[in-house]
Write a protein that binds this DNA or RNA. Structure first.
Lengths: 122, 122
DNA sequence: ACTACTGTTATACAATTTATATAACATACA
DNA sequence: TGTATGTTATATAAATTGTATAACAGTAGT
């Protein structure tokens, strides 16, 4: 899978990496058991430092998306903690929907957005 | 309205302020034309620096939630740029829903969350 | 045994962001 | 004339971000 980085973005590089990998899992481009490039390989491919990739991987591990193995490198291994995930999603939605509400985005329009996006995930 | 700040949070103080004010608008605790406390007043009340409040206000202004007036101070004045707002919401939802999808949160559960949250907004 | 590859850890550095601290300025208003 | 407003300028300390080298320990293949 292609991992693209926007160096002009205000988003931290390691956060962009995390997000792209998570979206890759959601879109089934990465499947359970698949290996990600090694920290050095990926850093070299993208043209960034090894530690930046390592930071992304380490956080992805701590958030239960991958496992790190000295043999196989980084392997997709999603750990399901649904309650935790729902709680985190709710916290973010509170502010995202508040912004939308202020800007006159209707509830129905939000539902439609969710449909559009979610239908591209599994 | 009570603006509470969590000093233990990893979220920047000025971001917490922004979010609370936006939620205040969405929940009609702040209405169009209402005045917010002055930067010095609010800083003093919360116990943080004037510039931290000023930064929150300045960004809220640039994002079209308030207007700043030397006479009246900070005044709620939501500028509706719906297309812009929809675009921003979509970008955030892409990653939020991807995370949810990985963690086996169903589309229906997302819709339900949206209902729960949105019903507390106007 | 040797080599090459993993993740892991340590240290150092520069740039940026966050938050604070003082100070001053221009405007508005009673 | 005070007092309040947002605004701007500087300076400082702490934390975050990204890079740079280097080394360590475990694994796999020859």
């Amino acid at each position: 899978m292609l991992l693209e980085i926007d160096f002009e973005s205000e988003e931290a590089l390691y956060v962009q990496l995390q997000n792209q990998i998570i979206i890759g899992i959601a879109t089934s481009q990465y499947k359970q058991g698949d290996s990600l490039p090694s920290v050095r390989q990926l850093a070299d491919t993208i043209g960034i430092n090894m530690h930046t990739v390592n930071k992304a991987y380490t956080i992805l591990k701590s958030e239960g998306y991958i496992k790190l193995d000295r043999r196989k490198g980084a392997v997709i291994a999603v750990d399901i903690d649904k309650l935790q995930a729902m709680s985190e999603m709710k916290d973010i939605l509170k502010i995202v929907l508040a912004k939308g509400s202020c800007k006159m985005i209707t509830k129905e329009e939000v539902h439609q957005l969710v449909e559009e996006i979610y239908n591209e995930y599994r």
